[in-house]
């Protein structure tokens, strides 16, 4: 039916005016070509609303429930009492617990701290790399960049696993250092916070380098030449010209690292020790070991609330980038 309509509309459009490409293009892309528009926007939108947005509402709902031993393991918020009275039971206890309990508070603070330290670590290693690639001879740039992206394609779990063999008490790093005579007894690195830092920086480095490269490769080199002509020393020119101009790239890379790291589970679980409390790990334990779904939901929502500000910043940056194009 609608297809026929479109065809009819098209024939009408054809008979009315000569087919100027511009007109027809707008005709196709614009609001009048309804079926295509409905599919291109509607289908992915519907999918995301159903499987990404709606779940958060359910998480919110369950975070207000109480755990019970049943299937599903949480109480209903609305219940009919005597067929005439609708009882509403909201339990804010989960949020109170998450905010007031020392353990959870420590986990949130530590997660933010790990996010901050690792973002800085990625920046310190990633910035010189991105700068070197962006200023390398043209024909080297693509292969160098490919080498940054390649680890990103290989399994995350396996790359974290690789560090266990290296950092263990009798692992490769300790054997190496002992053989060199630099240390007398094995260093305890695995199952400490240090191992978490190493694992996170290692895993998230490409997320920092790529946006930095994208930014630095568009840097106008004539500005640096002008600075040099005017007698500015390279180091000073870097601080006064390159660094300020690359701030958007720094911001983007930092957010791409910081946001997921705060909720990281695999790395603290495999490399961290009992002291490396992180929210992602607590959420996992509450859910899988303690079967406390409402508390896990409350943890998820508080974590989400903490990440809203950096997330909005990332969104702003992206739409600005889109505007520049």
């Amino acid at each position: 039916m609608s297809m026929n309509q479109t065809a009819a509309e098209e024939i009408k459009a054809d008979s009315q005016a000569p087919a100027y490409s511009d007109n027809r293009l707008r005709h196709w892309l614009g609001s009048r070509w309804r079926p295509g528009r409905w599919v291109t926007v509607g289908l992915p939108y519907f999918w995301l609303l159903l499987f990404f947005f709606l779940p958060f509402i359910i998480v919110f709902q369950i975070s207000l429930a109480e755990p019970q031993i049943a299937q599903p393991p949480y109480t209903a918020l609305l219940e009919w009492v005597d067929e005439a009275v609708l009882q509403v039971r909201l339990n804010l206890g989960n949020y109170a617990l998450v905010v007031e309990d020392e353990l959870y508070r420590a986990a949130f603070l530590n997660s933010l701290w790990v996010g901050l330290v690792c973002t800085l670590g990625c920046l310190l290693i990633g910035y010189p790399m991105a700068y070197a690639i962006a200023t390398a001879p043209e024909r080297w740039r693509v292969p160098l960049l490919m080498m940054i992206i390649l680890p990103f394609w290989t399994s995350f779990l396996i790359r974290v696993y690789a560090w266990i063999g290296i950092l263990k008490g009798n692992g490769l790093l300790n054997n190496f250092l002992l053989a060199l005579g630099l240390i007398d007894e094995p260093l305890a690195i695995l199952h400490t916070q240090t191992a978490v830092y190493i694992g996170v920086v290692y895993s998230y480095l490409p997320f920092m380098v790529l946006p930095l490269y994208a930014n630095l490769s568009r840097l106008d080199m004539t500005l640096l030449e002008a600075a040099a002509d005017l007698g500015c020393r390279p180091w000073r020119a870097f601080l006064r010209v390159t660094l300020p101009l690359s701030l958007p790239g720094i911001l983007a890379g930092s957010l791409l690292v910081f946001i997921p790291v705060v909720g990281e589970f695999v790395i603290p679980d495999l490399l961290g020790g009992p002291d490396s409390l992180m929210v992602g790990r607590m959420l996992w334990t509450e859910f899988f070991s303690n079967k406390d779904w409402p508390l896990a939901s409350a943890l998820a929502l508080v974590l989400l609330a903490l990440l809203v500000v950096p997330f909005v910043a990332l969104q702003r940056w992206q739409s600005r980038l889109e505007g520049e194009r």
Partner: peptide, 12 residues
């Protein structure tokens, strides 16, 4: 793209 995986997994 950035949402912590534990949140996505739990909510789904």
């Amino acid at each position: 793209l950035v949402m912590p995986e534990v949140i996505v997994g739990l909510s789904l």
